[in-house]
Amino acid sequence: MSSLGGAPWYILEFGDELVYFTPYTTTLLILALVFTVLALVSRPERQVEALFGTDAIYAKDTTVDQMRFRRFMAIACGCASMGAVVTGDLFNFTLFVALVGITNVGIVAAVKNRHVQNAAFQYGLVALTATVPLFAGAGIVAATTGTLSIVALASGTVPQAPFFARALLCLGVVGEGMAPFYAAKAEMFRAPGAPYVIMCSLSSLLIFLRVAEVVMVI
């Protein structure tokens, strides 16, 4: 534990679920916080589009109700990523990751562009499917080690989590965050509203970075 993300500086206790801050998770937490604040304070940009075959150029505006909703979703997404990077409980982690998945869908689903909505739907399907390996992974860890606390798992007093469970956790995070499928996620980025759209990619990266640490310590 002390060798991976550094020794925990501070442990916050919520019953059996500990929230701990190591140098690594604190770094991630600060980044999530910075981008959440940016999403809160920035106005969306006006995306300039050029029409093919003509010399027309126009700027897409984001309507106010859309902006409010997407800002709300972006902030929720930021909070979910913050939770996911600091939580010290495996099942709690999977729940935060699932929350990241659904807020990501929410950020883009509000856009009225057909391409974007199609992509958001497909992405939502993957996010929904990904809850299966996520929860299954956490369930198997609990059954084979008797605990879900990452601190207890890392301390070595309980059996090591099986390889299969770790693979499931990784697979689930990959699905929720779509890390390797960015190629398709690009469709979603046609949506204007940079401060919000950026939360999608930030949150997926953060949960990916966190799961990398988690599977190495458990």
Binding site: F14, G15, D16, E17, V19, F69, F72, M73, A76, G83, T87, D89, F91, N92, L95, F96, A98, L99, I102, T103, V105, G106, A109, A110
Partner: peptide, 22 residues
């Protein structure tokens, strides 16, 4: 003992409802 789980879980439900009703 696992209060944080239950905080996150209704939040997921809440967010999903927000998307659907929007």
């Amino acid at each position: 003992t696992r209060g944080l789980d239950t905080v996150v879980e209704p939040t997921i439900l809440f967010i999903a409802f927000a998307i659907a009703s929007f």
